[in-house]
């Protein structure tokens, strides 16, 4: 079986230790985490965790079941790239010289990014996009010299008219 990347959107009760049980499950059972983001939902009693992981189908099924088994997990949805909108946010510091400045700005422009801070030799840029857009953004900047890069990890939302929210699943 071949390994694929999968995105899991996990709705959990926003309680102490929940993130720890969740991440502990990955380390304890030898699953991979590529990225993990977590923040409260509209209802602050719950949080949304988005996990990007990879493994073959059987492993992903186990991960999903094991996550579900945690008492504080309300719902898990597994997304493939087609059925969701995914976005990631990056901030990066890039070298600029007199002769490269306009090229850097062009990359920002085509990537629909922004220059958020300017110093004589380093620009801080931001970009928001899906996986491949972010990858392209980084590749285009690489030749100029990336001094530092911070990524948020991916968040996703479904394309369908179905809503993964607390009300629908727990009746509150």
């Amino acid at each position: 079986m071949s390994k694929h990347r999968h995105t899991l959107s996990v709705l959990v009760q926003n309680e102490a230790g929940v993130l720890s049980s969740l991440s502990g499950l990955f380390s304890g059972r030898g699953y991979n985490i590529e990225s993990l983001t977590v923040a409260p939902t509209l209802d602050p009693a719950f949080s949304r965790v988005t996990i990007v992981t990879f493994g073959d189908d059987a492993v992903i099924e186990q991960i999903s079941k094991q996550l579900n088994r945690l008492i504080n997990t309300i719902k898990i949805v597994e997304f493939s790239s087609e059925d969701c909108i995914d976005r990631e946010f990056v901030l990066c510091k890039v070298n600029v010289k007199e002769e490269t400045r306009s090229d850097v700005l062009r990359v920002v422009e085509v990537s629909e990014g922004k220059v958020v801070n300017i110093t004589p030799r380093v620009y801080t840029l931001q970009a928001i996009g899906n996986e491949s857009q972010i990858a392209t953004f980084i590749e285009l900047l690489r030749p100029f010299g990336i001094k530092e890069l911070v990524r948020s990890g991916k968040v996703v939302i479904s394309r369908e008219n179905e809503f993964i929210n607390v009300k629908q699943n727990v009746g509150i």
């Binding site: 102490a16 230790g17 720890s20 049980s21 502990g24 499950l25 304890g28 008492i71």
Partner: peptide, 14 residues
């Protein structure tokens, strides 16, 4: 103890 028992109990509370 909540941290230590997390992977070996069904659930725990502090």
């Amino acid at each position: 103890i909540v941290g230590i028992t997390r992977p070996c109990c069904k659930h725990n509370y502090l």
